[in-house]
Structures are given as structure tokens and as C-alpha cells.
Design a protein around this nucleic acid. Structure first.
Lengths: 233, 233
DNA sequence: CAGTGGTCTAGACCACCGG
DNA sequence: CGGTGGTCTAGACCACTGT
């Protein structure tokens, strides 16, 4: 007989998951408290807590003070997608990345954007349109507004060589963001940029980012044919 | 003067993020070790560790034993999307959920699926087509294959009342999964199901799930007009 | 108001890995 | 080899909330 080691939190997580899968702990049921589990496994409560906290974070169980821990009835599965900068995304496919600036203009925020993000009437924005290519193939069309009040130094950047995405990442890193993906039809202008047929379906990502509550940028990204957002979970 | 409280790990996370944003800790640079930070903030090393571990988990910093902790050069931002079951997704919008089975048939796996997921030639599958509605509006068209070898009891289910998604979640919970989103054009048959124009862009999700390495199910989900996958991060 | 989970501590041991 | 982060412990205090 080998004396069983004290279990690590990974072992505990796996065991708890096994019990849930095996219906030892049924959906909706209360599972034993942390003290009880610590006694059962002969480990510290903190170790049990770490395992359960991570399972809760993953959406498998639900924990509430006083009420205890329950197996979720309908587990909310979560998928994590990495949102890299375009250059990295293109280069990861083995293709050469090329960037081109289409237009650059200063002006007021368009009405829809002011309404969407609650901007002042006179908010000055830098409006950029650019293209990203994988080898010679159009990869992504980018239309972006940057809030000059939030990033004053952007006026000095010309974006001829470096794309606004990369520029912003190094100038204003680690912002809060909201992103949405949908399917859109390529209008004739966009179709030409992306070398697709007019009306062809393309993936559209819209992202807004803030720093300390102030809008930094809003961008509409249309992807070329065949783009697929994928992950395991 | 009030004596400053010992900082919580949340406070520490915020402070570390502030230092990174403010370039006190520059991209690529080594940050102080845990012992040093614990001394600076007058708290336990475990508290520092929790804050840094979470930041590493979020892709902001990179940690390696012996080498220390560095601010990531190109932060890989991650977005988390919740993947609920259809019923919950529809009901969350305030609409009434309705489900309808279109067809149910036993047979072999189609060639493309056998090739895609490396199934044996004679793998027997249950093929299902069904629709999900939000009030009277088509919400999602579902075409699914279920591996009978993995879920033998599926042969007894008729799916007239309960959709295969919900049935599987309660029969085979917590599987591994791969999911991909793309934009597709509605073919005439699909367009009719979804009440969209033929050729209109719709979001397509393809998901494959396994249990202990064995394929459980593969499903193609086409969403109705206006579907949007969205999150903050 | 009592019992649950959430957090922190001070210390310890150890795996890893760069020099 | 030695210093870093990774993990665990035994205990403590506390916030929250169901009864």
C-alpha cells in the first residue's frame, strides 16, 4: 500500500468533474461544503476552494455564500477566442502580411457612432480606412474611428507604414473592449476591396474600446472569403 | 493619516494593470519578483501571486520560473463567449421558444464527416434536422449527426418534443468541443426555413463534441437574420 | 444570526530552468 | 546550482444571505 498523496487542486478538479459527469453529484443538487470535502480528501480547505472556484469560473457549478455550491442545471459553456492583431493572425497562417492605407481624414464623429457610444456633438475623430493582405489575397478591410480627445498623439501618426491596430496597441494598451461578430453582405465597394462578389457573405467584426471609460476607438472589420472564428473548449 | 489597509488581490491587479498602462512597467520588461512586491505592498506573497496569476491567465503578462514575470510584448487578448443552449438563448430575449423536428433518420456518417473526424467507414449515425423559433420567427436551423456508438440510448429518443441539444446536454454532459463560426449564404432550402432571401448572409456555427476522445456529435447551426455573437473583454 | 464561501496570512516545500 | 514562480497548509477573519 502506498500512502495516497494529498491531492492537488488539479486532481480535485478532475475528481469533482468526474462526479458531476457520473451523476454522483446531480444537476441542480447541492454538493458538500468545503470543510466536508477538505476532511474527505485530507487536504486544506484552500485547496478545495481553489478547485471549486475554477469550476465555478468555467460555468460548471454555481456558488453562493450561505446557500452553498450547486451543479448547474444547464451548464453555460464558454468558448475563449484569442483576438490577435491582424499581422499576427496573417503570419500565423504562413502568409506574408501586407498593409495599405486607403484613406485618412479628420472630422466629426458620424451620427450613428455618436448615438451608439454617447459621444459629444463636437467630438473630433480620425477616420481611417485600410486594407490587410495575406500574400496577395485580401484578408481584411478595416474602417476605423479614433477619438482624438482620448489619444491626442494620434494626429501626428500618418499610418502609412504601420496599421492603426498595431499603433494603438502600443500607444494605448490593455483597454476595455466590446466585440461583436455577425454575417454581412459585401456591398459593391467592399466587394472590390475584398475580391469577392457583390452581395457575398463576409464576416464582420465590430469592436469598440475604452480607456478609463473614455471611448478610444470604434472599428468595423470585414474579413475576406472563408474567414472562420474557431476554438476548442 | 489613516493606516492604509492591506491591499486585496483585486486592488493589486488594478494597480499592476495601471503600472503597465502607464508604462511604469514597459512591454517586454521584467517586473519585480513576488517577494519584492509583497514587501512593497505589505501583504502576503500568496496575495501577490493570485493577482499576477490572474493577469497571466488574461494574457497581459507572461510568467516563467526562474526567469521571472514580463509584460507581454503583444498582448494576446482573449474574448469569452457564452455558448448557451438554444432555449436559454431565445428565452433570454424575452421571446417564447418553440422547437420543431423536421426529420430523423438512421444511417451511415456522410463521407465528409467521416473524413473530417476520422470515423470508421461503417459508423452508424442518427441524422436530425430541426428548427428553433423565437416566438413565430425562425431563430436557428439545426442539422446534426449523433454517433450511436457513443450514445446508444439515442436510438430510443424520438426528439419530437425535446431538441437534441437539450437531450444531449442531460445525457452526455461536459464533453470536449470544437466550435467554429463563419458567414454563409443561405441556399434556397435553408432560406425557406429561416425566412430569408436565398443567398442572404447568415451566421453558421459548426460544433463537434467528443467524450473521452470518442466523437459524440457534429452539428451545423444556421442562425436567422441579425444574429450577432457579442461579448466584452 | 448562523453557516457558507471569499479572502488573506505566514510559512513551507518543491519543480523548474537559466546561468 | 540557486532563485523564481507554483502550490499547499492551518488558521483566521469577514461578507453575505437564507432561514
Amino acid at each position: 500500500m502506498t500512502a495516497p498523496d494529498r491531492p492537488s487542486f488539479r486532481v480535485l478538479k478532475a475528481e469533482f468533474l468526474r462526479r458531476i459527469r457520473a451523476r454522483v453529484w446531480e444537476p441542480g443538487a447541492l454538493i458538500p461544503g468545503e470543510h466536508e470535502l477538505a476532511a474527505e480528501f485530507g487536504c486544506a480547505r484552500a485547496t478545495i476552494n481553489r478547485a471549486l472556484t475554477e469550476l465555478a469560473d468555467e460555468g460548471v457549478i454555481e456558488r453562493r455564500r450561505r446557500a452553498g455550491t450547486r451543479v448547474k442545471l444547464s451548464p453555460v459553456r464558454q468558448a475563449r477566442f484569442e483576438i490577435p492583431i491582424v499581422r499576427a493572425e496573417v503570419e500565423a497562417t504562413g502568409a506574408a502580411y501586407r498593409y495599405a492605407l486607403v484613406s485618412r481624414a479628420l472630422g466629426r464623429a458620424p451620427d450613428w457612432l455618436r448615438a451608439l457610444r454617447d459621444l459629444p456633438d463636437d467630438a473630433r475623430m480620425l477616420h481611417l480606412v485600410c486594407m490587410h493582405y495575406a500574400d496577395a489575397r485580401p484578408f481584411q478591410h478595416e474602417e476605423r474611428w479614433i477619438n482624438i480627445a482620448a489619444v491626442p498623439q494620434v494626429e501626428a501618426a500618418d499610418f502609412g507604414a504601420v496599421g492603426p491596430n498595431e499603433w494603438l496597441v502600443q500607444a494605448v494598451p490593455f483597454t476595455d473592449a466590446e466585440i461583436g461578430f455577425s454575417a454581412a453582405a459585401a456591398d459593391p465597394r467592399l466587394a472590390e476591396f475584398l475580391s469577392v462578389a457583390p452581395g457575398e457573405p463576409v464576416m464582420l467584426a465590430e469592436r469598440t474600446t475604452w480607456l478609463e471609460g473614455q471611448l478610444v476607438t470604434h472599428v468595423r472589420l470585414h474579413f475576406g472569403r472563408g474567414y472562420r472564428l474557431t476554438t476548442r473548449y
